[in-house]
Write a protein that binds this DNA or RNA. Sequence first.
RNA 1: UGGCCCAUGGUGUAACUGGCAACACGUCUGUUUUUGGUAUAGAAGAGUCUAGGUUCGAGCCCUAGUGGGCCAACCA
Length: 678
Amino acid sequence: MSEEKEPLNFLEQIIEEDIKKGMDPQRLRFRFPPEPNGYLHIGHTKAIGISFGLGEKYNAPVNLRFDDTNPAKEEQEYVDAIKKDIAWLGYTWENELYSSNYFQQLYDWAVLMIKNGKAYIDSQTSEEMREQKGTPTQVGSNSPYRNRTVDENLDLFTRMKVGEFDEGTHVLRAKIDMEDPNMLMRDPLMYRILKKSHHRTGNDWCIYPMYDWTHGESDYIEQISHSLCSLEFKPHRKLYNWFRDEVYTYAKEDYPAIPNQTEFARLNLSYTIMSKRKLLQLVEEGVVNGWDDPRMPTISGLRRRGYTPEAIRKFIKTVGVAKRENVIDVSLLEFCVREDLNKKANRVMAVMNPVKLVITNYPKGKEEFFEAGNNPEDKNSGNHQVPFSSELFIEREDFKEEASGKFFRLTLGSEVRLKNGYIIKGESVVKDGDGTTSEIRCTYDLDSLSGSGTEASTRKVKGTLHWVSIKHAIKAEVRVYDRLFNDEAPDSHKDKTFMDFVNPNSLKVTEAFLEPSLASAKPGDSFQFQRLGYFNVDNDSTPEYLVFNKTVGLRDSWAKKKPIQNNQKQRNPQQEKQRPPIEAIKQLGKKYTNLPAEKQARVRATIQELAKDVKYEDLEPLFGTAAKKAGTRIATMITLGVLLANGLENTQEVLDFINTASEDKNELLVEEAKALLQ
RNA sequence: UGGCCCAUGGUGUAACUGGCAACACGUCUGUUUUUGGUAUAGAAGAGUCUAGGUUCGAGCCCUAGUGGGCCAACCA
């Protein structure tokens, strides 16, 4: 048994180390803590995959905990949607929990903190408190209420709880350190007064706990071992630990285990946005038709679009986990669906942009039925029947009167196979008034029927077309989607918002003609429309009129060749230019000696160009470059040459540098140095 | 003016406790094919941001620089 050792990601490494250090693997426990204020999106899928994936790997329980501490934003609708999405992805949670379950416990602990002098009531306005808080680069100052007595604090807190005060008049704050470089430690809020009804606790509470206080202690109560979250929570860790360590002193008998937070980089997808707030805006402003619009990166949108849980899980597995910011190319997601659907989806024929094809030597009125394989990837998938007649639709793009040899489709005088049917030959065209082709006339080869076993049936022809018999075809709506945004990173621009990049053509609705076997398709069913892509039946479908969504197209190496490609690299030159020129020069220099002569000349010119903006002070430190780093010294020398030419005076340091270099064993360096000596 | 995090082919992730950079997607070829799909064979593409240091040896360790990200909601 050769156990392929899959490399562990950094989270797994941490867990393995904890186990090695003596932690009981039975104590492993994870959680996924969404706030029910929006729908889950593909980004959450990563967090879900990580925590639930770890649960599966280590056979440990994973709680689904709704972080519902803000009654103003949270709703039952979102709770239901989130549960549905996670279940659909194929994960099972150990317990369905709510932070609001712990409101009483949290309150009791807060009282203990007050009694221990670790928390106090502040009665200033939020503006006043914000000013005292300082800035990231400036320390804060203490609140005038910071030294209230325990009794006074207790009294006020109790009255806050029973609703004696208005919103915004008092808050409970932890007493930590207003000068801590980490702003979260500057006496963070623990409770605020909110006279709102909560989706679970109704009107029981007038005060609600804040995230930091609630989240960490919920982990603690649930005895979570590893609390995983995204990078932006890194600064919260210090506070997480502070609260945790304080509460531990009150509760270690009941809750002996201490959770630890670890952060990972969240998922970003090119051409999409990943903020619940912004997605909500798209919904509310009607840019899309709801959270489950197939253009949305939400799980419900992807599901409706025809993505499968398997594809999404594969995707998440493939992108991996680390701590650096990343942007994943949508093409990877698309690859994952295609890979999955290729194995599962039955092949059928549909014509989206039809043109009439008449087979002139096929008996008018005759019909036959061809056998069509359901899925060549799956031998057990069986066949279905497709009706044929003398009048068909084919795709308009599949015909050209004449074309180069690289065009593998129908032209006048050339032969082509009708998928699962006969070989036909283009004979003539009929055009309407404005010159567009209204009908193509062709002849067929009777002996060439697919699968008939005749010699003619195995003839090789240039290409194969999909088609549909006009008489038998059923009509259906097909919704074709393009990316929702035209920009790779729609929400990363200074002077524009993501709304400025909304693609006005992200949805195209057309009517297509389908082979009749599709009449019995049910919402959710996925098919491959031969040569076109993967499509699934939308919930808007009725038995009388089907509606399809295009999930994703087939890989198309023909389409790629047609347009003159100019979406080449376009690396962000902006970023390159922002680097100080001396940095760019150093980097170029490092590789200089390995370059072929031709490239060297180009790099040399680049260095000279960059050198124009280099100051002597920036260059001088490089004179001390180690002898073995010839490349860097050459680059330094080239740069120096430019500075000298522009009037730099020859100092002793400059002369020493040049002289030493002129005696080096690297010829290129010597050459550059000697050039400067003359 | 502060603190914390990050830096490996175009993208993402690897490289076990230092030992001549691998995998996937993407790109490009060839073969097969009744889907210009799939499959299959192969290629190009980074010498690991820069400099200094430790070491026989560094992508991995140390220091500094550079670049990027995060941190001032009674949001989570």
